[in-house]
Each structure stands twice: as structure tokens, then as C-alpha cells.
Amino acid sequence: MTIKAPVTLPPKTADTISVFLAGSIEMGSAIHWQQEIEQVFDGRTQVHLYNPRRDDWDSSWKQEITHPAFNEQVNWELDAMEAADLIIMYFAPGTYSPVTLLELGLHARSGKLVVCCPEGFWRKGNVDIVCEKFGVKQVPNITALIDTIHSYSLNRTIV
């Protein structure tokens, strides 16, 4: 099941896991990598995917705390990452993804982060060093992120 911003997050239950899909969006110009993951888990009600890629996003919104829709979006993302059992993070080559870099810093010590940062991401070295320093698991591609979600849904641990 996919829950997109700004929909209220469902209550946690013992038989579900929640996964936040953090990563490159670039105001809609990055590849829609989240869709690939959504398709794999479509119909699996025990996996809740929290997708920040908002269907009604409006790039004219002022990115200021006083703009209600923007404020709602950022708070939804922060709340969803805190609530998630697992945060997967994808840094798309050819993007800058400053918000994702911020999220990496916020959650590097959480123990629930898995990162995919392929060659071609402009700050791959920084991402690699942060992941190494804080013991964040890295995987080589989106398929490996999907495998991580499958494994986590079975074992409830990052392997």
C-alpha cells in the first residue's frame, strides 16, 4: 500500500512494516524511481510505502515556513520518516538532491537507513563517507533496495 503526502499515516500494527521512500525528486525532474518500488509492492497490504512525491505538488509554492502547503509537505515528510520502520534513500545520478542530503544527516544514526548512491551523483564521496562512519548499509541499485524491503518484511532487521 502506498501512502503519499499529505495523506494521514495509518496506525502501526504488528503485521505491517512502513518504509519511507527518501531520495531524489528534483522538483519532478528526477526519474520516478519510487514508482518502480510501488509496482513491486502493489497489493501487499503488510508493506506501507510512504512516498513524499506529492501528486498535487505545485512548483510555484514559496518554500517558506509561512506557506501552508509547503509547511504541510515538509512536516509530513519529517513525521513519516520518524514513523517509518525503514528509510530507503536513493541519490539519482545527475541530480543534486539537497533535501535528501539533509535527510541523510538527520537519519544516519537512526539504524533504519539503507542508501543507494550510484556513480554519477555529484556528492557520492560525501555520502559514502557518512554511510561508512555511521554504519549505514549501502546497496548498488534500486533492485537491491527492493530486495532490502523484502528481506526486512521477513526478518524485521536490515541485513
Rank of each mutant, 00 (worst) to 15 (best):
M1A: 06
I3V: 11
K4N: 12
P6F: 08
L9S: 06
P10V: 14
F20N: 04
F20P: 02
F20E: 00
S24P: 00
S24K: 03
I25M: 04
I25F: 13
E36M: 04
E38G: 02
E38Q: 06
E38I: 03
D42H: 02
Q46R: 13
V47S: 06
L49I: 04
P52G: 03
R53H: 10
R54D: 06
D56P: 00
D56K: 08
D58Y: 05
D58S: 09
S60C: 12
K62Y: 09
E64C: 11
H67V: 15
P68L: 12
N71H: 14
Q73V: 12
N75K: 12
N75E: 10
L78T: 14
D79H: 09
D85W: 07
D85H: 10
D85F: 04
Y90Q: 03
Y90G: 09
F91T: 07
P93H: 10
G94H: 05
T95V: 06
Y96Q: 08
Y96A: 08
E103T: 08
E103S: 11
A108I: 07
L113I: 13
V114R: 01
V115S: 09
C117P: 00
E119W: 05
V127S: 07
V127Q: 10
V130W: 01
E132W: 05
K133I: 13
F134H: 12
P140T: 07
N141T: 04
T148H: 05
T148I: 08
Y152W: 08
S153A: 12
R156N: 09
T157K: 03
T157F: 03
I158W: 03
